[in-house]
Every structure is written in C-alpha cells, then in structure tokens.
C-alpha cells in the first residue's frame, strides 16, 4: 500500500475504473488534444514503471504539444491528489 492507501497492484476492476476516470478527466481537460492518441488519449501503463505513484498512464502527443501537455497534466495530477488523495502519474511522450 502507498501513502494514499491505493496499491499500484490493485485489482483489474479498480484499475479499469481509474483508467475510465482519468480518460474522462484528460478528455475534458484537453479537449483540444483528442486526436493525439489512436487508443483514446490515455493508456494504462505498467505499474512497475509508476515510480511509486498509485497509477501510471501514458500519453502520446506531438512534439509541438509536449510542453503544454506536461504542464497541464501536472496541474491535473495536483488537483486529483488534493481532491481525492490519489497520486497518479501521466507519463507524456512525443510521437
């Protein structure tokens, strides 16, 4: 268990729900970026790469969107942590 009480190894149901919620949040937050990933913006990352965060998500963006998305996802993660106590990480890559 992590400090927030959510395990990175949590069962599939919780993971799916987290993915659904984060996809929804990110879609809402980045309405301008809906086109960036063929898989629907966010994919669920390997917990082993989460660096101790509760969940890891992977987001692929175009190079000219990288800085803006890194900053915006950091804002989103901060809001989520202080609102729900869940520490998730969106790892932003360029494609």
């Amino acid at each position: 268990m992590t400090t927030t009480g959510v395990s990175a190894q949590t069962g599939t149901v919780v993971a799916r729900e987290a993915v659904r919620q984060v996809r929804s949040l990110v879609s809402e937050f980045f309405s301008d970026f809906r086109r960036v990933s063929p898989k629907g913006l966010v994919t669920f990352g390997d917990p082993a790469d989460a660096e101790g965060a509760d969940f890891l998500f992977r987001l692929e963006v175009k190079p000219d969107e990288y800085e803006q998305v890194v900053r915006a996802t950091s804002t989103l993660e901060r809001q989520y942590y202080f609102k729900y106590g869940v520490n998730f990480l969106i790892d932003v890559h360029t494609i």
């Binding site: 990288y66 890194v70 901060r78 932003v92 890559h93």
Partner: peptide, 22 residues
Amino acid sequence: FETARLLQKYRKRADYMGCERV
C-alpha cells in the same frame, strides 16, 4: 506538488533516453 511533479515528468524522460525537447 505541481512543481515537483512537473520536474519529475521531465526528469523521467531525460533518464529514459527521451527525445522530447523543451
């Protein structure tokens, strides 16, 4: 929190041979 997370994201790409530019 936001500052540390922002830096962490950039650091992760730098550590893992990311080709992202800032």
